[in-house]
Each structure stands twice: as structure tokens, then as C-alpha cells.
Design a protein around this nucleic acid. Structure first.
Lengths: 131, 131
DNA sequence: TAAGTGTATCATATCACATAATACACTACA
DNA sequence: TGTAGTGTATTATGTGATATGATACACTTA
């Protein structure tokens, strides 16, 4: 629930979802919002772990995922950097969003909600946690 | 991925989400769709477990949840019945949907998506798993 | 050489989820 | 009254994802 700042980055972690997933999403968001530029260095594993008060291995987990999907590039001994490819960033974020949306629609569907139900329903939440 | 039929009810379980949650949602859906009427008896714990090829305790978990939120009423020695209160059914389904929607919006928000992004994005999925 | 990187590998702990087996209590009905 | 079918409770076990803790190694830069 609490905000943690690391350089230009801001994180807000809770226990409702895996920490490494939250790091993953919020790091992607930081890139999308332009809070960190392409090619930029992100905090080291140990630094972020200390700042977020979580275990380095957990950060490592997130970082490995980020590299695996092409959001970051790692240089041993130097650090971890946001990829220089805007295309990869977009693709990665899109993939994440796709999963989120599909899970959402599947759940609503299994609740018996029709398409127009969902459209109406969702619009009620305008002005909530989304900008 | 496979459909299982139990009387008038149909279930489709997979391993991506907790079984008891899927039962919960799909039972609610069945009521909403009118596949089972208010006050109607639903399959016994053992019967549903056998039909879905899962453990009775897992079905029990789902049934306890359903009773806890007021979707069902249980009569020891007789069985479990859908509540006779249409209001409770609606309320229950709405609560479930609310959680699903809030989780969805929170995730999209943490991905840096704006409101109009989401509206556009979601509309691309029209004709998918939702009716 | 030293400090700061990523990386690897142990072990351990917790929690949610599911299974398994068994027993008990209540109800309906032949 | 007995018996079958209900929900319920208990205890144990297993599994996988997640997170932690500690330590060591390899690489890069200054």
C-alpha cells in the first residue's frame, strides 16, 4: 500500500498479487509513461531489493522475466537496461494487457455477463484507479 | 477444458484458476441464466464431486462459500438449495463482478493504461468468450 | 585491487489449493 | 426401525507458487 521511490521510479507493492508480477507491470508502466527512457539503466537487483524491502531473489525473479520477454537487456557486471527497441516495449506491454483482458472477459463470461452488460458495468468505474 | 454435465447444470473447469472459484462463478451464472430456479436443489456434495471428478472437500469449499455469501441455503440431511431471494442472488453476482472488474482495472492501471485506452482495447475483443 | 554488477545454488518457510480417508449428525422414507 | 442419502468435521498429506536467507561465483569498471 505504500509508495517506494527508487531514483525516477515509483513502486507500490501489496500482498494481493505476486511481488515479482507487480514489479514487472509497474516497470513496464514506468517505461510507457516515459518515467524512464529507452536504453536507460534500471536499479540493480540489490538496490531495488533494499529500496522495496524485499528479497534480492524476488527482484531477480522479476528481472529475469523482464529480460525473457525482451523488456530489458542485461549486461553482466554492468547492470540491467531498458531495451532500446520501442517495438519490444510496446509488444511486451500489449502482451501483458492481453492476458489481463482475456482473464477479465473469461471471468465475466463465466459469471454469465453479456457483452453489453460488461460495457455498461465497466463504465460505472470511470474515474476510479485508472487515469 | 472439458464440459461436465450434472442434471441441468454444465461446468467447464480448468487449472488456471482455483476449482472452487470456478464452481462458485459458474453456479452463480447458472442461476443468472435461469438454468436453475430459485429455491431449487443443487447437486449434493458427493454427486457434484463425482461428476466433476474432483474431491468432495473441494466441492464443499465452494458450497461453503456459496452459503456464506447467501447464494444458497443448506438444510442438513436434505441438501443445498439456491436461495429463494432474487435480491441475494443479484447481490452476490454483483459482488463477484465488482471484484473481477476492480482487479482488472487495477492491473490495467498499473500497466499505465488510461481509461480511453481500456475502452478501445476491450472493444477489440468483442465476439470472444463473452456472448 | 576493490566495489558494484548479474548469476547460481543451496536451504527453508509459508500459503493456497487439492486430495484422501474417515467419522459423525441429521433427514427422509420404505 | 433401519437404511440410504444428505451436510459437516477432522486429520493428514501432497503439491506448487511465492518469498526469504545465506553464500558464492563471474564479470566490468574505475
Amino acid at each position: 500500500m505504500e509508495e517506494r521511490h527508487v531514483g525516477p521510479l515509483t513502486f507500490r507493492l501489496d500482498l494481493s498479487q505476486p511481488l515479482y508480477e507487480q514489479i514487472l507491470r509497474q516497470m513496464s508502466s514506468a517505461v510507457a509513461r516515459g518515467e524512464i527512457a529507452l536504453g536507460e539503466k534500471i536499479p540493480s537487483v540489490r538496490e531495488l531489493a533494499q529500496a522495496l524491502k524485499i528479497n534480492p531473489n524476488t527482484v531477480m525473479h522479476a528481472y529475469k522475466e523482464m529480460e525473457h520477454v525482451g523488456l530489458t537487456e542485461t549486461r553482466r557486471g554492468q547492470g540491467t537496461f531498458i531495451t532500446t527497441s520501442q517495438e519490444r516495449v510496446n509488444q511486451f506491454r500489449t502482451e501483458l494487457a492481453k492476458k489481463v483482458i482475456e482473464e477479465f472477459l473469461e471471468k465475466m463470461g463465466s459469471l454469465g455477463y453479456t457483452w453489453s452488460d460488461i460495457e455498461q458495468y465497466v463504465s460505472q468505474y470511470k474515474g476510479g484507479c485508472v487515469r
